[in-house]
Simulated assay, not measured.
Amino acid sequence: MANTSTCGGAAFQTCSPAGTSGCRLFDDNGRCIQASFNYDCKVADAVFSPAVNCGATTFCEGGSCWERNKTANGDFAMAVSQLEAHMQAGLDMDVDGSNIQIFKGADRRCQIANLGIDNCCNDGGFIERCSAEQQETYRLKQQGRCHELGEYCSNRSALGICVERTRTACCFSSILARVIQQQGRAQLAQAWGDVRTPDCTGFTPDELTALDWSRFDLSEFYASIQTTPLEQSATQGAAQNRQSSCYYGQGKC
């Protein structure tokens, strides 16, 4: 039988031997009559894509990089805040007959007497000596629920010296109500009155409808309700407990 080989074809000219050869077929005398040889052959040119080293906070592939860090979704926060604003608008109403006021405030005042020694406006150490109404005003201011208008001299001595000054503010049911009042009045070019006679009226339904909510910055309100990591952990634990009762209890969450 003539010797034949399939290893001399043109396809193998650029190949490189790989591994070891082996016998595939023996004759009756144990001699190898068919052998096989392994080659590495190029199928296509290699393609190299350089990766940019952007540091440990990124993931790079194919010349492009992506940040690993999570980015806070500010749009979601604003959407939640605006939804809360609309919900509170339906609750924070003052109705007197056909007169409806939304996010109405209250005229709150405090006094600074004895040339500033007796300060019922911002002296936490002295506040217990002040009237109950002034203590409440102080509490509302500390909670960020007031828009301050300023102060005026409310008492003068016989010599004309101001011995008592009064500070006025419009205080609201919540931080959100105060923020909406401040920014809403700016849109409507609506004044706050003056320091002696502040205007703390709420919005009419028509005025509230006319406001452009896309222009509101409610980040101050959103920041005031963000939970701390400890609170988030407690919330997650409560949610997990409720989930168990949903699945393994009576189907009530």
Rank of each mutant, 00 (worst) to 15 (best):
G8F: 10
T14I: 06
S21C: 06
R24C: 06
L25P: 05
G30C: 14
I33T: 15
A35M: 09
F37T: 14
F37S: 14
F37I: 10
N38A: 04
Y39N: 09
D40W: 05
V47M: 14
F48Y: 15
S49P: 06
A51H: 06
A51N: 09
N53C: 06
C54I: 02
A56G: 05
F59R: 06
E61V: 08
G63F: 01
C65K: 02
C65H: 00
N69Q: 08
N73R: 09
G74I: 05
V80L: 09
V80I: 13
Q82F: 05
Q82E: 12
E84A: 09
E84P: 05
H86F: 12
M87Y: 09
M87S: 07
Q88H: 06
Q88V: 08
Q88M: 11
G90T: 04
L91R: 12
D96N: 15
G97E: 00
N99A: 13
Q101W: 15
G105F: 13
A106V: 05
R108T: 14
R108S: 13
R108N: 13
Q111T: 14
I112N: 10
C121K: 04
E128V: 08
C130R: 00
A132E: 11
E133D: 13
Q134I: 04
H147V: 12
E151M: 13
S154H: 08
A158L: 11
L159V: 12
C162P: 00
R165E: 13
R167M: 10
T168P: 05
T168W: 14
S174Y: 01
S174W: 01
I175C: 04
L176K: 00
R185T: 04
A186Y: 05
W192G: 02
G193E: 03
D194I: 03
P198D: 04
D199C: 04
C200G: 10
G202M: 02
G202V: 02
G202E: 05
G202T: 04
F203C: 02
T204A: 03
E207Q: 15
E207F: 01
T209P: 05
T209A: 13
A210E: 05
W213T: 12
S214T: 15
S214F: 02
L218R: 00
S219T: 03
Y222M: 03
P229L: 00
L230M: 15
E231D: 01
Q232L: 12
A239H: 02
Q240D: 11
R242P: 03
S244F: 09
S244H: 07
C246A: 10
Y247I: 15
G249Q: 01
G251K: 01
